[in-house]
């Protein structure tokens, strides 16, 4: 009798647990649309490639901002390091993109781990300063080491070999496929991590670090781990950009990169993985449209969007989704 009751409860718990991590139909739809866009807009491969890379970049920030609550003003440090590593390595005759990607990931991971101990100290303010400082130092180094990085002119003449036998073409078809596949694979990994005990404890830390520690979660260790993971992802994104555009310049380390990625995650909403992806898409389209309208002053409109988003509430997407759900449910709403 009681054992049977326990067995029922157990089934309930497993069922609930599985529902919490199950794929929602909208997730399938999202990725089907992504795949379809590849074939539907063959003239837009270059743009889509860039969106995929930015999406990966903001996914990486979402890991540390949305899942660990660390505000970073210098996330471009890892992006830039990844880009330069992938670029410089081709100068030494290593032209295979996958090896380049691996090296870039390692470099960014190492930097992430090394700086995490600093970046996770103290208050939000200290974190802002340290993350900003790390990115500035890297920018300065890349600027000074002209013989290696090309300095202000950027890294010219990268020679990236074919990826699994496919040569990168000027229309970006191969590049776009490469970036999308890497994005998808890394997304799947992030999704698994988020639904693991490790991922649950990250959400716990974000919600309430005091209580997280009180159930035995080593808060600092977890933050170091996720910060490093976020750095690694950003490094991959940077490497993809360098490889697919065959170019890396100081721009990859600039402050506006760090600010832009914050904006992307903000637009899409933090802490559910898709926020970064949606945010990158919206941001890139917005940037493209605005810079066509006002080439020099599009920054103004980006700034305005940020201010309005903050004052109006960053959860606009969530509210929109709730509104749509209410409207489409029969018998509910108005």
């Amino acid at each position: 009798m009681t054992t049977q009751r326990i067995a029922t409860l157990r089934l309930q718990a497993v069922g609930l647990h599985d529902r919490l991590s199950a794929w929602h139909w909208s997730e399938y739809l999202f990725w089907v649309l992504v795949a379809a866009s590849y074939f539907l807009f063959p003239s837009r491969h270059l743009l889509m490639n860039e969106i995929a890379i930015l999406a990966l970049f903001s996914l990486s920030l979402d890991l540390i901002l949305g899942y660990a609550g660390v505000i970073s003003l210098g996330h471009a440090a890892f992006f830039g390091l990844g880009a330069y590593t992938a670029g410089i390595i081709t100068k030494f005759g290593v032209t295979d993109p996958l090896i380049g990607l691996g090296c870039a990931t390692l470099a960014a991971t190492a930097l992430g781990l090394a700086t995490s101990f600093l970046a996770l100290r103290g208050s939000d303010l200290t974190r802002l300063m340290v993350t900003l400082g790390v990115a500035l130092v890297l920018y300065e180094i890349a600027n000074r080491l002209g013989w290696l990085t090309g300095g202000a002119d950027g890294l010219q003449g990268m020679d990236v070999g074919p990826i699994l036998g496919f040569d990168f073409d000027i229309f970006g078809a191969v590049a776009n496929a490469y970036s999308l596949i890497v994005l998808f694979v890394l997304f799947l990994i992030a999704r698994r991590v988020v639904h693991s005990p490790f991922g649950w404890s990250l959400r716990a830390i974000r919600d309430n670090p005091l209580r997280a520690a009180a159930i035995g979660v080593p808060v600092r260790g977890r933050l170091v781990a996720v910060y490093t993971l976020g750095a690694a992802y950003a490094g991959v994104a940077g490497a993809l950009l360098a490889q697919t555009t065959q170019f890396a310049s100081l721009d990859v380390l600039a402050f506006h990169r760090s600010a832009d990625v914050l904006l992307m995650v903000t637009i899409g909403g933090v802490g559910y993985l898709y926020g970064g992806l949606i945010g990158a898409l919206v941001f890139k389209i917005m940037q493209d449209t605005l810079s066509n309208l006002t080439p020099q002053y599009w920054e103004f409109w980006i700034g305005l969007v940020l201010v309005v988003l903050v004052l109006g509430g960053r959860d606009w997407l969530e509210r929109l989704a709730a509104l749509v759900a209410r409207r489409t449910r029969p018998g509910a709403g108005r």
Binding site: L128, A259, L262
Partner: peptide
């Protein structure tokens, strides 16, 4: 932070 960055961008452009 987001608000202030937005403000800076706007002021810069203006």
């Amino acid at each position: 932070v987001l608000f202030c960055i937005g403000l800076i961008f706007m002021v810069d452009a203006v």
